[in-house]
Design a protein around this nucleic acid. Structure first.
Lengths: 248, 248
DNA sequence: GTGGGGTTTTGACATGAATCAAAAATGGAT
DNA sequence: ATCCATTTTTGATTCATGTCAAAACCCCAC
């Protein structure tokens, strides 16, 4: 096989947020056209991780935040007693590592759920930059508060909702996140295993599986392995609100 | 009765972080002596709320973060369906409102659990200041990430631990927070009702009550109403780790 | 002190989801 | 294509905690 000719000869590490299709989701979202160069100056682009590889590990020195370019990442924390809790799933355009900001070490471990490419933002340079760009700082605050809110929502889901409601909520969340990227919100493949879903939602794997089949029997979704189709989004939304009706 | 003479004639709104006994816990912690004035310039001090009064309400315009000076605050979110979830308890020296940073509206409602005084940090001025003081910015990132982590810990507690483990964890958390303020870590009065504990920990009130009596019968704690004494801290710590032993 | 609303406790019972067990399906590696 | 490990599904049983009901207690206003 002949040596391929590189059509675009670019420095492998030179970022190009300008051209990135995710610039309307990722950090560039908050940066003015003029200042985008400064963001590009600090970002390390193009690192790739295979399924299962660690982007970073809990309790190792916190160096960078990572934006997902393609693929998907899951984060989890391990308590002293060795129990693992999946704390989040991150899709393209989303920023991983915010829970470690201002800390010496990473607060969680991040693993690639599939072949995943990321952009790396070294934290020192990022903090420096947010000090200079008020809009970027504001956006960082926003992203972090969003993560707090998301986590509170999760707590609510875990403490007040049934297995069906939790899974419906997760499916809807994934759906809307696919849609943000102009992908189908009704036809997608789950980046994570049932096990991860179960852990994240505080359920047993068996329960997750059972709910999936139940939803399928009711014609709400169609699932074969990780391939999922939402046949009746309204019904899913109803499930998540079911709880309220009964108690109002 | 004679009109009292004011020994210290101070402007009621002029802050004095310099003299505040909580300056080693609160935001001043991150600010150099020289810059402390700048923090004092933006803080509004001395607002007082009675038990049950709202410091701010979910979905109203986000204006300020609040530091608890004395008393205690609980935050909660109300989902579309009307369910309430207590998302946190805040003790003196702790900062309330971080989950709304960068947002237009408050993400939660904050209520005083008892007579409570707070310092108010108007958000615009705070953001401006964190842009100028890298250490303060860093500290804000730190506080926010701590809140994310705390929320993840809560999620873990809710999804993996029994009622006893959750309550033991809460008691220990409160204990260490009292200790940080140089107060007894074994003898304190709970600022919140059983109901709030139950809601926060995703349990029924009855369950909370039962666990309290169980702990009492085992001689681990002694409780009369909100007055609590931790008789056997080690036992409590053991309870929180119990779970692991069985599964390791 | 007395009364009354809201907490807190206690008891009896029901149930959703965990657990245990095992079969079926999937997907890499060779 | 085949095999093996892992993941997913299905079934039977158990258990912790929720729910319902009611008594006991507490605090605060009058």
């Amino acid at each position: 096989m002949a040596q391929p000719i590189r059509l675009h000869q670019v420095s492998p590490l030179k970022a190009s947020c300008h051209q990135c299709s995710l610039s309307n989701l990722c950090l560039p979202l908050a940066v003015e056209e003029n200042d985008l160069d400064r963001l590009e100056d600090i970002v390390l682009q193009g690192r790739i991780f295979n399924r299962g590889e660690h982007i970073f590990d809990q309790s190792t020195p916190f160096r960078s935040c990572f934006a997902v370019k393609s693929g998907a990442i899951k984060t989890s924390i391990i308590s002293e007693n060795g129990e693992e809790q999946v704390t989040g799933f991150f899709m393209p355009g989303e920023l991983v590592g915010l829970d470690s900001m201002g800390s010496k070490n990473y607060a969680c471990t991040a693993r690639a759920l599939e072949r995943t490419s990321v952009c790396e933002f070294p934290i020192e340079r990022l903090e420096e930059l947010t000090g200079k760009l008020p809009d970027l700082q504001h956006h960082m605050y926003h992203l972090m508060s969003q993560e707090i809110q998301g986590s509170h929502q999760l707590a609510m889901l875990l403490s007040k909702n049934t297995a069906e409601e939790r899974i419906a909520a997760l499916l809807l969340s994934l759906s809307s996140r696919f849609q943000r990227r102009r992908m189908s919100g009704t036809n997608f493949s789950l980046p994570m295993a049932r096990n991860d879903i179960a852990n994240f939602l505080g359920l047993a794997v068996e329960t997750v599986s059972r709910v999936f089949t139940r939803f399928q029997n009711q014609g709400i979704i169609s699932a074969r392995g990780r391939e999922v189709e939402l046949l009746d989004v309204e019904a899913l939304q109803t499930v998540t609100r079911e709880f309220s009706r009964q108690n109002s």
